[in-house]
Design a protein around this nucleic acid. Sequence first.
DNA 1: GAGTAGAACTTGACGCGTCAAGTTCTCTTC
DNA 2: GAAGAGAACTTGACGCGTCAAGTTCTACTC
Lengths: 185, 185
Amino acid sequence: MKKSTGPVAETRWLNGDELAAWLANSAIMISLPAALDARMQREAQLTFFEYMVLSVLSEQPDRTMQMSALAARTAASLSRLSHVVGRLEKRGLLARKRIPGSGRRTTATLTEAGYEVVVAAAPGHVAAVREYLIDDLEPHELAALRRIGAAVDAAIKRGQPDASSAASPPPEAPTIHSGPRRTAD
Amino acid sequence: MKKSTGPVAETRWLNGDELAAWLANSAIMISLPAALDARMQREAQLTFFEYMVLSVLSEQPDRTMQMSALAARTAASLSRLSHVVGRLEKRGLLARKRIPGSGRRTTATLTEAGYEVVVAAAPGHVAAVREYLIDDLEPHELAALRRIGAAVDAAIKRGQPDASSAASPPPEAPTIHSGPRRTAD
DNA sequence: GAGTAGAACTTGACGCGTCAAGTTCTCTTC
DNA sequence: GAAGAGAACTTGACGCGTCAAGTTCTACTC
């Protein structure tokens, strides 16, 4: 509650159109992730986030990534990643390895079993994304969604000036690839 | 890898535009709620969801609602609501009351303290919604967002045919009002 | 070359959401 | 009028994410 000092700007409440847009937005913010998560759990016994982790790894040429890079790519804290990767490791879907030399590095590598899990899960995931979102949209809506997402991303970053500056490559939105990376079949 | 049996529909991977839209969407799905939540926590010591609960109550003429109705309006399970309301009750922001007669009803009523908390939190919340989302959008994007949200909502409901049928009024998206309901000042 | 800064994790405690089970009512049916 | 069926919650255990601390390294500095 900071409201005492000076002429605080009057609150601009949302008008009809804005309110409707915001309301509609909560379907995207709340129902969509819940639906995707539930389906992933049902069809592949994976959390949406776990799928992201495995999926990102599967896109790497050697199916390997350093923990901090993985964290950046999946928009997770290192701590969260560490916990999740620990569990996935116990399930045999990936393996960690301490890298000697430079700093205290660790990499995670997808195992064969892990790779098979991603490949099996990917079609269902893409189908869900189409079913719940993409296939219902007209081209111009697809374009609008793209712009809106970019605007949101920019607005949020504007709020937290830097957050870090060293490790992360181009700070990218969480990726959920178009399909698993093909290797020699 | 399941691809052997029969003519399983080929997976339609996302093309460039679709992928970009999906990627952008994850900013809305992931970063936006996190940002709103963090800000609400910082400015009002409330979870986004707790704010929703208090806010919905504040919009009722008597600041009172039956638990199941509240659950429907906030898109939460009765169990989750029960836990959250329990905590809010301990903080003195609302009070529960068993209603004798018809079934095993319980209502939650906002206390004066709870009302003051919502009123204090609302301007910041609306400001955040504007800052992170609404104010960055052109009118046509606002309209598109509205349509996209509606499409997502419909698509998800299509997936889970009924879910119940008795209690809930028009199944509505979670509301986060335009401003706290005015009473006699 | 010892000390300090700091990057890159890991770990444990704690809080919140979910799931399954339990409780308490009413209403129907025979 | 006794037995179900079922609506409307509540409760407890468990899992996952967060936050604060701890651990290991490298690199710089004097």
